[in-house]
Amino acid sequence: MNQDWLMGLLGGGLIGTSAAIFLLANGKVMGASGLIGGLVDKSGLGNWQERLAWIAGLVIVPAIITMLYGGKPTNITGNIPVIIAAGLFVGIGTRIANGCTSGHGICGISRMSLRGIVATVFYIGAGGLTVVIFKHVLGII
């Protein structure tokens, strides 16, 4: 198997296991946009410590791994207006839809949730169309 696919499967297994731990121990759905967004709009301050602890792990561990073993660049575009627009769309969209790739994707699809499946179809569809238009038609990204 292609090395990248194998790493994808391994990393995915780690992601799924982390979500399983969060569910079985803490009793919560591990959705990144919900855990972060609840602190930003103050709707989730009731368990702010748990949220901050989760965010700390998410930020610090990749930083340590990158420091020790070197990291691969994110290769994000240098086009700042595009980045700002993208960030705003991701922030607003995930909160209105109540989930992102982790919440609707991993946690939703794994319990065959209708909302999770519908959301995943629409964000992958919209993402695909966006790449086609902005990369192949307009040549911006």
Partner: peptide
């Protein structure tokens, strides 16, 4: 759900 997911997808793609 649908409008939000479409918006998220656009940003994700960009």
């Amino acid at each position: 759900l649908i409008i939000g997911s479409v918006m998220f997808g656009i940003g994700w793609g960009l």
